[in-house]
Amino acid sequence: MKGLVTIALLTISNLFMTFAWYGHLQFKKLAWFSKLGLIGVILISWGLAFFEYVFQVPANRIGFEENGGPYNLFQLKVIQEVVSLTVFTLCAVYVFKTDKLGWNHVLGFGLLVAAVYVIFRKW
């Protein structure tokens, strides 16, 4: 159960992260947003990043094996990267609608799955 909670919280965290890091590149199409200067955009991104951490920190605390969770630090990091790239890809393709998913992206994700397998395998 802690493993699923960790992944769910990381997913929510990465939604905020994606919008904090890349949303401003798309939201400039909005009239009020396009008038903001760099400082305004930074402040909005920081506000979004706050919520990223509100979910990310508990996710790691819950999921970490020394706190009773199922994952070690390497596993937490690999999970976070896979979740991050998955959320980013879905946002880029379906929310921002700026890119199309290509074969190289699919191959790259396949390699990430292989990395997850290697990191989680007990040798």
Rank of each mutant, 00 (worst) to 15 (best):
L101H: 11
V93Y: 05
Q75Y: 00
E81A: 01
F96Q: 00
V87W: 09
F74L: 14
V95D: 08
K97C: 09
V95K: 15
D99W: 05
Y94L: 14
N72S: 04
A92Q: 09
V93F: 04
N72H: 02
K77D: 02
L90E: 15
D99R: 07
L101Q: 10
C91F: 04
T89S: 15
Q80H: 08
K77M: 00
F96M: 00
L85V: 02
V83P: 15
V78W: 11
A92I: 07
S84N: 06
I79F: 08
E81R: 03
Q80W: 01
T89W: 06
A92R: 07
V95P: 06
S84Y: 02
S84R: 02
T98H: 12
E81F: 02
Q75E: 09
K77H: 01
V83G: 07
F88R: 13
K77S: 06
F88S: 12
K97T: 10
L90C: 05
K100L: 15
T86L: 04
Q75D: 01
T98C: 12
T86M: 06
I79H: 04
K100H: 15
Q80F: 02
L73H: 14
F74H: 12
V87F: 11
Y94E: 03
F96P: 07
F74I: 10
L76E: 05
L85T: 08
E81K: 00
Y94G: 05
N72F: 05
Q80M: 00
T98L: 14
V93H: 02
V87G: 12
N72I: 00
C91E: 03
V83K: 09
T98R: 06
T98D: 15
K77N: 12
V87N: 12
L90D: 09
Q80N: 10
V83Q: 08
T89L: 14
C91H: 11
Y94H: 09
S84Q: 10
S84H: 05
L85S: 08
V95G: 02
V82P: 09
K97N: 08
L85G: 11
F88G: 15
V87L: 06
V78C: 06
L85N: 09
Q80P: 02
Y94M: 07
V93N: 12
T98I: 04
K97I: 14
V78Y: 12
L85Q: 13
I79N: 09
A92C: 03
F96E: 02
T98A: 04
D99Q: 09
T86D: 11
L73G: 04
V82R: 07
F74D: 09
D99I: 10
K77L: 00
V83D: 05
Q75K: 00
L90W: 03
L76R: 03
A92F: 07
V87S: 13
F74N: 15
D99K: 11
Q75M: 01
Q80G: 08
F88Y: 14
A92T: 03
V95Y: 03
V78K: 08
F88V: 12
Q80D: 09
Y94Q: 04
A92H: 07
T98P: 01
V93E: 08
C91Y: 06
C91M: 05
N72Q: 01
V78M: 14
V83R: 06
Q75V: 00
I79M: 04
